[in-house]
């Protein structure tokens, strides 16, 4: 799966969406839309967050699926939380 670029390769600032296109009727919409906060995570981190939601937020279930210990999963979640908080700080305000 191709990873959508979220930061400018030239100046490292966060990119925004300028154009959206309907795949069926090819209607195009232009504007400036900020990327969702979760797009700043890596593919694996996004997959982790999705699995977490699918597991109804049960770290125990996540640990059983991945065959790793509970604290390993919880620490990974803490790491993602730290990353999101860091991104929020860089953006200046929480992405709510």
């Amino acid at each position: 799966m191709k990873k959508m670029p979220t930061h400018c390769p030239s100046c490292s600032e966060q990119l925004t969406v300028r154009r959206l296109k309907c795949a069926v009727c090819e209607t195009e919409v232009e504007g400036v839309y900020p990327l969702p906060l979760i797009s700043g995570l890596s593919n694996e981190e996004q997959m982790f967050v999705l699995s977490f939601i699918k597991a109804s937020g049960s770290l125990k279930e996540m640990a059983a699926i991945m065959n790793v210990s509970y604290p390993t999963v919880r620490n990974k979640l803490n790491e993602i939380i730290r990353k999101i908080e860091e991104t929020e700080r860089c953006q200046g305000e929480p992405n709510e």
Binding site: M47, F48, S51, M66, N67, V68, S69, Y70, P71, V73
Partner: peptide, 23 residues
């Protein structure tokens, strides 16, 4: 996901950090 999580740990984790898989 397991491969991704375990890839963060070193090759000697079974000896010095078995808690990645057991706790």
């Amino acid at each position: 996901l397991r491969r991704w999580i375990v890839s963060d740990t070193s090759k000697t984790s079974w000896l010095f950090n078995p808690f990645v898989t057991i706790a």
